[in-house]
């Protein structure tokens, strides 16, 4: 009989990463006709995004697509994906993927199908042009950046003050200058219309999104060998193609912003390197500090700088 997986997405179905995932499901359903089918039944209106990995671990839903950092509180090793500068093809090849897969099976009780990586970087977006220091780096001392548990350590290392602003308040907050900027993926900024107020983008970008596809192990075990093979095959293909698609998408969005008058604050040379290093260091230091026995191995497999 046909294997059916009921799947959620961590972001609403209107989000463009969710739409990418629907294309993945369509590809599986096409190739697996009569063998395996992925039904994307909905998003956070069914299980809140942050709680979906737990739901898969409990087996109450079969499958989900979302950031692995949502499980960072239970699995510090999730930081390997957050801090990585390598593409998913490389980390699958070198055994990095298998290591995270193994840790996730042990601590979260989930089977990771793919590091499904719309892997273009985040950028800092600011209301006003930041001052420059003598070495060419930007001076964010005392600037208020919208807090995010993932990036607060990085922001603080730049001298900025993280401030907690709930998403619905961000639009009004930027309009009124309640805070000075935020770090976000470009494509998501566009959906909230925040680009109307954010007039400066800091280049280069930093880090990358940490999305993945997760399946309940009990469900994975009941799938036919053929089904598993099709799922894995399509996942690997999409890991590669989506990586490239997403870099193009990010470039397009940023070009649109520039056409509407957004200015680029370009960091060069050592200043650029120090900026990106600080972002990565904050993540890898956090993994190290968690006491994970895999911290060094993961850094070696996921990080090349």
């Amino acid at each position: 009989a046909e294997d059916v997986l009921r799947s959620l997405t961590a972001f609403p179905s209107t989000d463009n990463t969710s739409q990418l995932y629907v294309r993945f499901a369509d590809a599986v359903n096409e190739r697996g006709k009569g063998i395996v089918r992925v039904d994307v039944i909905g998003g956070p209106e069914i299980v809140p995004g942050l709680q979906q990995i737990e739901a898969v671990g409990r087996g109450v839903v079969d499958m989900t697509f979302g950031p692995i950092s949502y499980a960072l509180g239970s699995m510090p090793e999730a930081d390997a994906w957050v801090g990585s500068d390598l593409d998913p093809m490389v980390t699958r090849e070198n055994g990095g993927f298998a290591l995270v897969q193994q840790v996730a099976a042990e601590t979260l009780g989930i089977h990771i199908l793919a590091r499904f990586a719309p892997a273009a970087p985040l950028h800092l977006y600011l209301l006003e042009e930041p001052a420059r220091k003598e070495d060419g780096s930007i001076d964010l001392t005392g600037k208020r950046l919208r807090a995010s548990p993932l990036y607060n350590a990085f922001y603080e290392s730049l001298g900025a003050i993280p401030v907690s602003i709930p998403v619905p308040d961000v639009y009004t907050g930027l309009e009124r200058g309640t805070f000075d900027g935020l770090g976000y993926p470009p494509s998501a900024i566009e959906g909230w219309n925040w680009d109307r107020f954010l007039k400066y983008r800091v280049d280069p970008g930093f880090l990358q999104a940490d999305l993945g596809i997760y399946i309940a192990p009990a469900k994975w075990a009941t799938l036919s060998e053929e089904s598993r093979q099709i799922l894995t095959e399509v996942a690997i293909e999409f890991e590669a193609s989506s990586y490239e698609d997403w870099q193009k998408l990010t470039g397009d969005v940023n070009a649109r912003f520039e056409a509407q008058g957004m200015q680029v604050v370009q960091l060069e040379g050592d200043a650029a390197k120090a900026f990106v290093d600080a972002a990565h260091d904050a993540v890898w230091n956090r993994l190290k500090a968690s006491g994970s026995p895999h911290a060094d191995a993961l850094r070696a497999l996921y990080f090349s700088r």
Binding site: V47, P48, L50, Q51, E54, A55, R58, V60, S164, P166
Partner: peptide, 27 residues
């Protein structure tokens, strides 16, 4: 509902997990 649709205690656990998210929202 969760007993029937999600199955057993796992469903109730998920219900409570979702409940924490429903109330602990700054908004």
């Amino acid at each position: 509902g969760v007993m029937v649709l999600m199955g057993g205690i796992g469903g109730i656990e998920q219900l409570l997990t979702n409940a924490t998210a429903a109330v602990t929202s700054f908004t």
